[in-house]
Amino acid sequence: MNTFNKSIIAIAAFTAFTANATISVSDTDQTSFDIGGEILPECKVSNYSPERSTSLDLSSTEAQTTASISLWCNTGQGTARTTYESVNGGYMVSEEGKKIAYAIDIAGTANDLQLTSAQTINQIAGNGVEGAEATRAVSVKPLVTGFEYAGTYTDTIEVTVSYE
């Protein structure tokens, strides 16, 4: 009984595949069919953060390079909308809850961005089928006075990119 069911299923499947492939007298020696698909617009971001990004000199107000952000988009545009956002609202925070404000600079793009709210800028992006990205250095400027509490302060900066 089980073999009988499998045979009927196999015959039905074969019939379904060959039903539309019938040759007629009006067919020619040539045919064609369309193919195609879609690649949706997208941007990609990556970063390189050397060890020095977690060992900033928090007694200095000088800009200190902390990461290199690389962008690539498949839209052919020269720039991409890039959003920088701080997990701690623009502050490096110690385990004791003490805070140090900071600003970031994106080389050749923007200076003194404070991340108390998300900051969106147009940043140069690579394009082309080789995947060549455009990279910009990101520096952090601690906004210190010299009277901060001792401790280890940290924050996380999230970077999101999208085509314009």
Rank of each mutant, 00 (worst) to 15 (best):
A12Y: 01
A12S: 09
A13D: 00
A13S: 06
A13P: 01
A13E: 00
A13I: 13
F14G: 14
F14H: 11
F14Y: 13
F14Q: 11
T15W: 00
T15M: 10
T15K: 01
F17H: 04
F17T: 15
F17K: 00
T18M: 08
T18V: 12
T18W: 01
T18E: 05
A19D: 02
A19L: 13
A19V: 08
A19N: 03
A19P: 04
A19G: 04
N20P: 07
N20D: 08
N20K: 00
N20Q: 08
N20W: 04
A21Y: 02
A21K: 14
A21L: 10
A21R: 09
T22P: 07
T22D: 06
I23S: 08
I23Q: 07
I23L: 15
I23E: 03
I23A: 10
S24A: 08
S24R: 09
S24Q: 12
S24M: 08
S24T: 14
S24H: 06
V25C: 05
S26I: 06
S26Y: 05
S26Q: 04
S26M: 02
D27S: 10
D27C: 02
D27L: 00
D27Q: 09
D29Q: 10
D29F: 07
D29K: 13
Q30C: 08
Q30M: 11
Q30D: 13
Q30R: 12
T31I: 10
T31Q: 12
T31G: 14
T31C: 13
T31N: 14
T31H: 14
S32R: 07
S32N: 09
S32D: 06
S32T: 12
S32E: 10
F33I: 14
D34K: 08
D34V: 06
D34W: 07
D34F: 02
D34C: 00
I35G: 03
G36D: 06
G36K: 04
G36P: 02
G36T: 01
G37H: 05
G37N: 01
G37W: 06
G37R: 04
G37Q: 07
E38F: 09
E38H: 12
I39T: 10
I39C: 11
L40G: 06
L40H: 06
L40M: 13
L40D: 04
L40K: 15
L40Q: 14
P41R: 09
P41V: 06
P41I: 01
E42D: 10
E42V: 09
E42L: 12
E42F: 14
E42G: 01
C43N: 11
C43Y: 02
C43P: 04
C43H: 00
C43L: 06
K44W: 00
K44L: 03
K44Y: 00
V45K: 04
S46W: 01
S46R: 07
S46T: 15
S46P: 04
S46V: 01
N47C: 04
Y48K: 11
Y48W: 05
Y48E: 09
S49F: 02
S49R: 08
S49T: 15
S49G: 08
P50V: 01
P50A: 04
P50C: 04
P50G: 07
P50L: 03
E51F: 13
E51C: 03
E51R: 12
E51Q: 15
E51H: 05
E51K: 15
E51L: 14
E51Y: 12
R52W: 08
R52Q: 15
R52I: 15
S53W: 02
S53V: 08
S53G: 07
S53T: 15
T54V: 13
T54P: 03
T54G: 08
S55G: 09
S55L: 12
S55R: 13
S55H: 15
S55W: 03
